[in-house]
Design a protein around this nucleic acid. Structure first.
Length: 740
RNA sequence: GCGCGCGUAGCUCAGUUGGUAGAGCAUCUCGUUGACGUCGAGAGGGUCUCAAGUUCGAAUCUUGACGCGCGCACCA
């Protein structure tokens, strides 16, 4: 071997990934057997790893213009599913394509501690196996157990990512909870605190009684539920409610100022009336928030347990009383019902009101009940002292006064972040319009501890604990999305002014599922715009959900999960990737079945056999010396070049599903079925120019095709490439993308 | 309630600025011992959900209807 790589300083210059290799003048014996992904993939991935090319620092000199993507960090809650595999396939296609085009390409791997999701999963396991709760273990022991679990998940995830062929730069791997990222979180928190954008206050929050923590508005899942809607006599008014158990403290009756039915009552007027536990004094309040058309147009309010009521109460400076405790049980204010669970108390309360003659009527009613995404607990709004990010407060930014909301809006409206498909831009703006302050404190142990310390009435926020005595740190941790929001730059070393940050931020593309556009995409924009003053990425590409063959969501309860690694073992990763990509446009859900994958396994084998034919027909053929082409072959080459051009255009415009399909269709039904078939005569011909022209044409198409297909099916193409009789070649992964 | 998407061959979907419908799988027929863990040649199958409009021309643009799905808000 005498490796003289043409393009740069390849540490693995010979590019010979195959065992055995070709005989000096013959076709490698391995092409006589069908393509075997199982014995190929790990070896090929290993050769990529050894080459060092996943790390842009090691790429040859032609790679100059930076291209960067952060991997949406998988949660350390378990293993990857088909949806993750789709994400990997799309991103790896983008990354390999960019790398071949000569860009200094960086794809950063990492994992997400996923605070509440991980803790609740481990807690559940411990409870099931050992009948112990978090309090039984204590903070230190529980965290130890969670970290062990997270470590194992991390190992599994990394192995899966490698199995899927992801060309990630493992030397830059990050974790949302490691020291570098923790420092970034503390830095971000302090800056926002100092600017008054993070505050602590008694505000109404979403309380998850099951998880015993607050959650953000975005972590709520609404489920439709059938229940009863009751009408009660409330003095001269009739009020409606679906939640009688919250009505104990209700002493304000709200009507619309324009409602003629109640015009005889004045704002602030007091009325004595009989209520659940005896006579009370109620006050009439007039507020435009009320919907005159709904129910009787009159309602009582429970400010402690309703967001809307809370806002009304704040407007009119009304009393707020807690009725339900944080375990979902009624408090002493409810008298005889104290200590009862909501579900037990409700019918008894209705019974009592009925006995008192105050029940007017009841109706069937369907409404959405708020549940916690991770625990399934029924969310109970509560007023609590928590930490919030103020999204509306104006602050100085250059000459302007802006709010975080403004920053988020401007990023897409003015700074040119492009969202694909563009209809999600509307969704994004719509979300921002309705956005309220973001509750970021969580009463769980796994996560970034809030960098705030208390001593008596003193509050201290800094990167490190205060030096003097008597301080205790806030018990709470941060919403996991707070650290995820920093991901595009925390992974590059921020707040340190690193060379990576300089070179790779803003990142080129963010590729993720449309389901986390608010959770993650919006928060990254917020954080990057606020902390760095730049957008975090130029383009957002959103993919959809992978569903089962019948179009159902993948769910444990349905048992319809298809494990991408199982499929990869059976059909090869390349086939899995193609199956996921073809027919899957941005923003659309896709259906996944084994059939689809099987077809692409055959395709891998087809390419394998095409190679066998081409190499056998051109043994000892000198590819470097291009012969004069016959008219026929020149036409074939021109047509093929047009296909490549078309495919390149699709690649540049994120139409991977089309590019892949076009390559597939051309190679199988044009190249194999027609061009190769017709070449057989030419190659058997005694006419040397005809023969040589045909041989060169076949070789040329195969060679160019392997380059174009490599981002889609990296393993089989790299493996074939290693046996292509081409002088001075490198690994296919850094060969030039065919652009004509 | 506000907003978004989808409805094309039995199934899964393409159809990029409007030019008389395509692929894969499935079905059927024929062929194939030298590139093919199979492959090839061919066939059947669609009033592109419906209606109206714009246009020389509409699966594609506009409006409306019907059906399916999703997001957000939320009704006390």
């Amino acid at each position: 071997m005498n490796p003289t790589p043409i393009r740069g300083n390849s540490p693995q210059g010979d590019g010979n990934t195959a065992e055995g290799g070709a005989s000096s003048n013959g076709v490698n014996q391995k092409f006589l057997k069908p393509y075997n992904p199982e014995t190929t993939e790990d070896r090929v991935y290993e050769s990529w790893m050894k080459s060092g090319y996943f790390n842009p620092d090691n790429l040859p000199a032609r790679h100059t213009e930076p291209f960067s993507i952060v991997l949406p960090p998988p949660n350390v809650t378990g293993i990857l599913h088909m949806g993750s595999a789709l994400m990997i396939a799309i991103e790896d296609i983008m990354v390999r394509h960019a790398r071949m085009k000569g860009m200094k390409t960086l794809w950063i791997p990492g994992t997400d501690h996923a605070a509440i999701a991980t803790q609740s999963k481990v807690e559940k396991e411990i409870y099931q196996k050992e009948d112990k709760r978090r309090q039984d273990l204590g903070r230190v022991e529980l965290l130890k157990r969670i970290n062990e679990f997270a470590d194992q998940s991390h190992t599994d995830i990394v192995n899966q990512l490698k199995k899927l062929g992801a060309s990630l730069d493992w030397s830059r791997e990050a974790y949302t909870l490691d020291d570098t990222r923790n420092f970034a979180v503390r830095t971000a928190f302090k800056k926002m605190y100092d600017d008054g954008l993070i505050y602590r206050g008694n505000r109404i929050v979403n309380w998850d009684p099951k998880g015993q923590t607050t959650i953000s508005d975005d972590e709520i899942v609404y489920n439709e539920e059938k229940s009863k809607f009751y009408y009660f006599q409330y003095g001269p008014f009739v009020i409606g409610t679906a939640r009688p158990e919250t009505k104990f403290g209700d002493k304000y009756i709200i009507v619309h100022p324009d409602d003629a039915r109640y015009s005889q009552y004045k704002d602030g007027q007091q009325i004595d009336l009989e209520w659940i536990n005896g006579p009370i004094k109620a006050t009439v309040i007039k507020d435009t928030a009320i919907d005159m058309a709904f129910g009787t147009g009159a309602m009582t309010i429970t400010p402690w347990h309703s967001t809307v009521d809370f806002e009304i109460a704040c407007r009119h400076n009304l009393d707020k009383e807690q009725i339900i405790d944080k375990y979902g049980k009624l408090l002493p204010i409810t008298g005889e019902f104290a200590g009862m669970k909501i579900s037990d108390a409700r019918p008894k309360i209705v019974e009592k009101l009925k006995a008192k003659g105050l029940l007017v009527k009841e109706e069937d009613y369907t409404h959405n009940i708020a549940t916690a995404e991770r625990t399934g607990g029924i969310v109970e709004p509560q007023i609590m002292n928590q930490w919030f990010v103020n999204v509306n407060k104006k602050f100085k930014r250059g000459a302007d006064e802006v709010s975080l909301k403004d920053l988020m809006k401007n990023a897409v409206e003015k700074d040119g972040i492009k969202i694909i498909p563009d209809r999600f831009e509307k969704v994004y703006f719509h979300w921002i319009d309705g956005l309220r302050d973001w509750c970021i404190s969580r009463q769980i142990w796994f996560g970034h501890r809030i960098p705030v310390w208390y001593r008596g009435n003193e509050v201290y926020c800094d990167l490190e604990a205060p030096k003097d005595d008597g301080w205790t740190q806030d018990e709470d941790t941060l919403d996991t999305w707070f650290s995820s929001g920093l991901w595009t730059f925390s992974t590059l070393g921020w707040p340190a002014k690193t060379a990576d940050l300089q070179m790779y931020h803003p990142t080129t593309i963010l590729e993720t599922g449309y389901d986390i556009i608010f959770f993650w995409v919006a928060r990254m924009i917020l954080m990057s715009k606020y902390l760095l003053g730049t957008i975090p990425f130029k383009t957002v590409y959103l993919h959809g959900l992978v569903r089962d063959e019948k179009g159902r969501k993948i769910a444990k309860s349905l048992g319809n999960n298809i494990d991408p690694v199982d499929m990869a073992k059976k059909y090869g990763v390349d086939a899995v990737r193609m199956g996921l990509i073809i027919g899957t446009g941005p923003g659309n859900d896709s259906k996944m079945g084994e059939n689809k994958i099987r077809g692409y396994k055959n395709f891998a084998n087809k390419i394998w056999n095409i190679t066998r034919f081409v190499l056998t027909s051109a043994e000892n053929f000198d590819y470097e010396n291009k012969p004069a082409l016959t008219e026929d072959d020149a036409k074939i080459v021109a047509e093929f070049d047009a296909i490549l051009k078309d495919v390149s255009l699709d690649m540049d415009n994120f139409r991977f599903y089309l590019a892949g399909e076009k390559l597939y269709a051309y190679v199988w039904h044009e190249f194999a079925d027609i061009i190769i078939e017709e070449s057989k005569k030419k190659i058997a011909s005694d006419d040397a120019p005809v023969k040589q022209s045909a041989q060169w044409t076949l070789f040329y198409i195969l060679e160019q095709f392997l380059r174009a297909l490599h981002p889609f099916m990296p393993f089989v193409t790299e493996e074939i490439w290693s046996d292509m009789p081409i002088k001075n070649k490198t690994l296919l992964m850094i060969e030039e993308w065919p652009t004509k």
